[in-house]
Design a protein around this nucleic acid. Structure first.
Lengths: 175, 175, 175, 175
DNA sequence: CATGAATGAGCGTTCATTCAT
DNA sequence: GATGAATGAACGCTCATTCAT
């Protein structure tokens, strides 16, 4: 998985399986002992990365406190993961837009995001978009997160500032 | 171009050039009379689609009137283009994330978006994100547009409603 | 023909016919009005070049005089042609080893060389190789001519010297 | 290598790699496991054939004895190789005039011919062509060898006679 | 279970030749 | 007769996958 992540970042999804195997230090044949096809490897990797991202975001939510503070805690976790794992993030981005991801895999990805989704749902239900479908809100959250990550990575000195600005823009959009 | 757009939507960027040629009703060799390589075809198509999208968005901006109304006019144009040209939109999305797009092509794409970029800049300069980099704002605008388009397409009955809701969320985020 | 000669020198026999046509200032289709196939163009060019070479070699043979002097006159003509027409010589060399030359073309080439062949035959008949087949002698003459040409071209300052040395080596070989 | 040699003789250098692979009894893809490109296969084959030819020529030179006898021994070896390996000879001839041979390959070929070159140099230094460049002599030797080979192959009954006649003509030319 | 050579279908691209204008 | 766009067969090369060892 680690090898595949690295290779996807440098060579894209069209990288030969042999390259991934070499990067992982195994033979090209061994790869197919564990994954029936290249597509299956990618599907599993997608799930692993998405789950890892969700888990990182949900870590250590303050039990009490205001909802907005909880949300900001999650948002910060999420941004921190992105900054700390740029390769995982980029590989995940590539996998997300690939048409090799099966419906089952996408469903699994959503399941892994369940905890986050519930928080978003709470946002939606009591905010300005209370009449919009949940997926609309999720999409907005996702894309504002991506935009914020980009600028934290590009301008690391002001990462904390961008993190906060992104959150506040999102909060305004939703309330 | 039309054939390439259709084929990209159904088969992705890895579709054989022969398929595109057949869809266009020409021989496989003829394609290379007009485009030196597959990558060049994709680069030109990206520019064409991006320019078309930008032109559609900027059509008929009311000269006078409030800035917010002008923005909403552009936003509506943009959403209308997306709903009316789902294939173009999907092909453009795939091309946008492809690493086959050259720097020159991306630069050309940005140039085509210049009119839109200027409007966004006016939003940024006097709004809550006045201290954020322009590209941050552009990314937010883009992604909220994408989210809105998705839900207009998925739920066409309430398209006008989603269009308005998306715009308002964006406006809140920026002000 | 001139265009084909130039193109063969710079790009070899695998040069596209379109390149030859462009060099000749005609359309790619026109080429096939005058030559049914690429191979036919090459066969005709071979004949033209070979005939031109033979004619150049035989020009102005002194009627009387010693046989050796006549031979040297021809040899000098031949070398002069090679030095003056390096492109023709190189194109002819490439055509000569090509398997696209038909038997008829090769026969025609020999016919064009008839005058030279008769001189060689006189050499053979009264020299050391009088028992060897004529073609053996012809091959030796040809290849010593090629060797001499190479060094006249590479070292033009001493061209006359190389010309003479080559002739004398040949004369020794044959007598 | 053997398969490539055979195929080059029958179909020339433009033979499809698939034909060579089939002749070798392997799949078309396997060929590229061992040679990165068709050109590399040809370059390696050239070196192998040239080295083999040189080695055959230099085999068992009589240590003592007259220089002329040593030369004739080498000449005979050389001619014997040509008669025994007509396919190798023809493939080598085609490869030698191909512009796909790299400078490095030609340099390697010359290195393999070093032993022969030294003998030729001794001929040159004390013969009639002592003032001519070495490459001139080498070219003459080569081409008289080729002429002799041709006639040994065409008239095998008198092969030994042609071999001797060729050598003597060469010896006269050089002395 | 690990290995890595072998496989062969598939693709992008070229180019001799044709033919409607 | 000239043109040059169109044609499509052919080729070099790649790579996911298999399987004998």
């Amino acid at each position: 998985m680690k090898a595949a992540t690295r290779v996807i970042v440098t060579e894209g999804l069209s990288a030969p399986t042999a390259t991934i195997a070499r990067e992982a230090g195994v033979s090209s044949g061994s790869l197919f002992t564990y994954f029936d096809t290249k597509a299956e490897l990618f599907n599993q990797l997608y799930l692993e990365l998405k789950s890892g991202m969700a888990a990182a975001a949900l870590e250590g939510i303050p039990a009490g406190g205001k909802f907005r503070d909880q949300m900001f805690h999650v948002w910060s976790n999420w941004m921190r993961w992105a900054v700390a794992s740029p390769e995982k993030r980029r590989a995940l981005a590539q996998l997300s837009v690939s048409d090799q991801m099966t419906a089952a895999t996408r469903a699994g990805g959503n399941k892994a995001m369940k905890g986050l989704a519930e928080l978003m749902e709470r946002c939606r239900a009591k905010g300005a978009l209370r009449d919009a479908p949940m997926a609309f809100v999720a999409s907005i959250v996702n894309s504002m997160a991506e935009a914020t990550m980009d600028f934290m990575v590009q301008d690391p000195t002001n990462a904390a500032k961008h993190c906060k600005a992104g959150f506040e823009a999102l909060w305004r959009a939703l309330n």
